[in-house]
């Protein structure tokens, strides 16, 4: 087994084209190789020293979050907190400070777990993954990237270089809320993200996506009825019902499918409510779970 420490993107791409696998923070890859769960790849290329991958760039139309940006940065970076707050809510819930210091958004997205916390907020914000290889660079919608638990449509020689998010219109807000049994080192039991844009008091657009209730992160469809309505009890109830209906959760030792189905509705309602409050200009600190006292209490 070998590890090469890359300092440029070209070096990574050439390594991948020769069969090496990327390692960023290693918080999924190394932990996942334990206890017979899998073995480490024969050739690793460390991508955590490449400064271009660690940048957040605000362009005229989109914001580019380098794949190597850590959760610790996502939860505090002023641009992300101000404009893509749901991503910060999610990053702030990941693991412990140690996990957040080295764990990256690229690793979270490319690991492809249906329980990944940054996935649902990225989906509601319309993010695309930028994938690069020695031959081409392409942008892929996230619902085409994730094809099953732990599986992506990216080719083995493709590096995720960035997550690209359209800049938000005025009067927009986003939020991510997760059901958890304890306040740290938790995996989402279920989670929901929402992005809302308001026109006066009325919702002019709303997107909701769900964590850990299907083989991949899923978007909730059929929310057109709440567009044009205020984010009131009736609208929130409609979101909640649609989310519970469209979820396809499993039962395991952490929660039954019925409990998950019910609670995903509760989480979706809270996410939309928080996103709408943020869209109206209210500051709700990151993460929503702590600010509003949802999820586990102290």
């Amino acid at each position: 087994m070998t590890m090469t420490i890359a300092t440029t993107i070209d070096e990574i791409l050439s390594g991948l084209s020769q069969g090496a696998r990327p390692i960023a923070g290693g918080t999924d890859l190394v932990v996942g190789s334990r206890q017979g769960k899998g073995t480490l790849p024969e050739h690793l290329i460390a991508i955590d020293r490449v400064s271009e991958l660690a940048h957040i760039e605000v362009g005229a139309e989109t914001t580019r979050i380098g794949s190597g940006v850590t959760h610790a940065t996502l939860m505090t970076d002023p641009t992300i907190v101000a404009s893509f707050t749901g991503v910060s809510d999610a990053a702030a819930l990941v693991g412990s400070p140690a996990t957040r210091n080295v764990g990256t958004i690229g690793g979270n997205v490319m690991n492809g777990s249906p329980a990944m916390d940054t996935g649902a907020p990225l989906v509601v914000l319309g993010a695309q993954a930028e994938l690069a290889s020695t031959s081409a660079t392409r942008l892929v919608d996230l619902d085409e990237l994730w094809v099953g638990p732990g599986r992506t449509s990216a080719a083995d020689d493709e590096l995720c270089t960035a997550l690209v998010i359209p800049n938000r219109p005025e009067s927009s807000g986003s939020a991510y809320v997760r059901l958890e049994y304890r306040r740290a080192m938790e995996i989402a039991i279920v989670g929901a993200a929402a992005a809302v844009t308001l026109d006066g008091d009325a919702i002019s657009s709303v997107r909701v996506a769900l964590t850990a209730v299907a083989p991949t992160i899923i978007s909730v469809g059929g929310l057109d009825a709440v567009v044009g309505q205020p984010a009131d009890e009736a609208a929130l109830a409609a979101v909640s019902e649609a989310s519970s209906e469209q979820a396809a959760p499993i039962s395991d030792l952490r929660a039954s499918d019925r409990y998950r189905r019910h609670m995903i509705g509760v989480m979706a309602r809270r996410a939309v409510e928080a996103a709408a409050r943020r869209a109206s200009g209210e500051t709700i600190s990151v993460p929503v779970n702590r600010a509003l006292g949802v999820g586990a209490q102290s």
């Binding site: 590890m3 290693g26 190394v30 932990v31 140690a98 210091n101 080192m185």
Partner: peptide, 26 residues
């Protein structure tokens, strides 16, 4: 030895990491 307990915490460039789950060569 599974990234759960923090007994292995060390600092990497001043910030905490779980050394049980970080490859030494990195």
């Amino acid at each position: 030895d599974d990234c759960e307990c923090g007994a292995c915490m060390v600092l990497l460039d001043g910030r905490p990491i779980n050394s049980c789950s970080y490859l030494a060569v990195q």
